[in-house]
Design a protein around this nucleic acid. Structure first.
Lengths: 202, 202, 202, 202
DNA sequence: CATGAATGAGTATTCATTCAT
DNA sequence: AATGAATGAATACTCATTCAT
């Protein structure tokens, strides 16, 4: 379970994709390891050549889903920071909704995060959240430096609030509104409104 | 399972409270019917005198958690509609967080809602959401009527966005921040900021 | 798993008997819980209404096999102590061989005792051994008191040696000689010879 | 799997030593082929280049453990036959206990012998036993010839009884008493006592 | 010879649900 | 109404063995 060859990498990804599909369909507890193996077209036992347990497979999957191509999502942070915040939120929304019928897994994993603080899944979700929050916080500080956001705004909590708002909307869209976004409910718009409400000049 | 006597009602509620405790602790799949029965101090089999299945028990629980005392949360809707929106969101936050260690169940059920659209739990969650969204929508229309909100705002989608924002923040607080609310992350404040961003006069 | 009714007792014993049969046939690791359930004519899950685990079932079985009717095996200890030692050993032999085709389990459990000192089985075997050894030790002390055994003999180690000799022979008979005992290889005779070798007047 | 080169022999022995270690630690069923391969520092699959199956590996191991250097243990059989019996038993004890922490495997295999009469392990154990028993039988006959043992003693059964006594004590020491031998419980002493009890002049 | 990825049968244990008492 | 013994389907994980490289 240590070394990684290209072949191994490919297999690993193949299994993650199968898991994404099955977890999305049935949820974490509803999905069986056998289902995932079937979906991937491998034998049950083979799953355990690549993951320690069902739980750690899900943990890896969280990382996989939230962070792939992540460089692209975090462009320069100095110029036009507010635009970057909006862009980042839109990117998150886009990425998760791009999972199509699999996006339900995001809800599910998010929900798992509150369940047992020590699970692989919870750890993955928290890490993602913290990294994202820190990114927005930094952008808000830059925005204050160039006068785009009032000094009274506290970057830390406000950054987290923006992220919470963003994920709240994504979740909403997944649950009720997957295919018919409305401007008010799209992440970018809502974040823009929120920032304007803070006194930002967008 | 039809007729309801006061005695029966009391038992029913007793079981729901036990379920609330156990589901919050262990999640829906992690909790066993036996655990709930133990918690309630009744025999396993007795659960089935009051509920058709574990799933329908959870469905009832959703209703129970989100709607109890709901009249109180929806005062007059005509005067000061924006204040009522903020108050409603604060009430939701307060109520869910008042569940204390049990608030995790909200996340959990919310996550379940996306799982299988036809489950009892999903139906319960959706119903709550729709009722709430409709309530805010109505308030926004009133606000437009008295000129507190610009005509360009679309009450339906905006109402849903406010609600999504609200639940996003609650979820955030449950997962990361249960005990140390910050103004920016409290529902009321965030909603106020959002409404201001819409051009509302609060 | 606490209370015990007569009905429960009967079931418990029924399951132990089935386990005795299956463990004897297939060994501890070779036997499956399903086999035991089949043998007993109950459902797999029912086993766990009476035992915590396969291991604890085996632990209970050891106690059951070695100690049933044990009062009968330990008559008065004061008069004719050497006769009682021989009788005790013969009783052990008889009891274990009476298991017939099931006696192999004795070997097996004995072997397990050395495996993991902390297992239920090991604990059971050790307890039996210690109780038996203490019983023989006491008899040897009595024998010394009335002059049937020289003072030079040390009751503790010698008692354990007698027991080891006894179990060695039983094991031998089970493995090689189940149906055709020869005087030299029967427990009683061998113990008598050994005691005579110690200088005892039998 | 037929031909044997020196290189092959070395590998074979290396694997047996690894198996000795692992079986002693975990028992036959508790040990996995992978563990043995790890211990030996080879790949799992390589085991099967030297043994047909896990079972046959264990069978070979029995032979290996009980018979190595066996010539040394069977010196002349004509003079002082009783001394040779005692010496043989002491040698067995010494050899098995010399396995140190691995001696548990002896118990284990012995127990396996009763499990399925046709297993490789059982065959190995039986063969060892029979050879040893025959050796002692021969010595007893010699002893009778020179008058050291009464004619009434039957060499066959008595030889087997001596061996059973011997193994019973070894087993006892492994299970309860590994480090603190007492004279009464050491093989040599016990056998001497037993022979004296038979009327032998030692 | 040597490897280690792949297999898939096998197993202990859990748990929602039923039903005789 | 209430019980809790009984059920049996479901499932995560293990491991001896094979075989392409």
């Amino acid at each position: 379970m240590r070394v990684s060859s290209p072949k191994r990498e490919r297999r690993h990804e193949q299994l993650l994709n199968a898991a994404l599909k099955v977890f999305s369909r049935d949820g974490f507890d509803g999905a069986s390891v056998a289902d995932i193996a079937d979906e991937a077209g491998v034998a049950k036992g083979s799953i355990y050549l690549y993951f320690d347990s069902k739980e750690s497979l899900a943990g890896d999957l969280v990382q996989h889903v939230f962070t792939q191509d992540d460089g692209a999502a975090r462009p320069g942070t100095v110029e036009k920071p507010l635009q970057h915040i909006v862009a980042f939120c839109e990117k998150q929304e886009e990425r998760i909704l791009a999972l199509g019928e699999f996006s339900a897994i995001v809800l599910h994993m998010w929900g798992q995060a509150g369940k047992s603080a020590s699970s692989h899944i919870a750890r993955g979700v928290r890490q993602i959240f913290n990294e994202s929050a820190f990114y927005i916080e930094t952008l808000l500080e830059n925005a204050q430096r160039i006068g785009e956001v009032p000094r009274t705004v506290k970057p830390g909590p406000t950054g987290r609030a923006v992220l919470a708002l963003c994920y709240g909307l994504i979740q909403h869209r997944i649950t009720f509104d997957k295919n018919a976004p409305s401007p008010a409910e799209s992440c970018g718009d809502a974040v823009r409104v929120y920032l304007r409400g803070l006194g930002a000049r967008t």
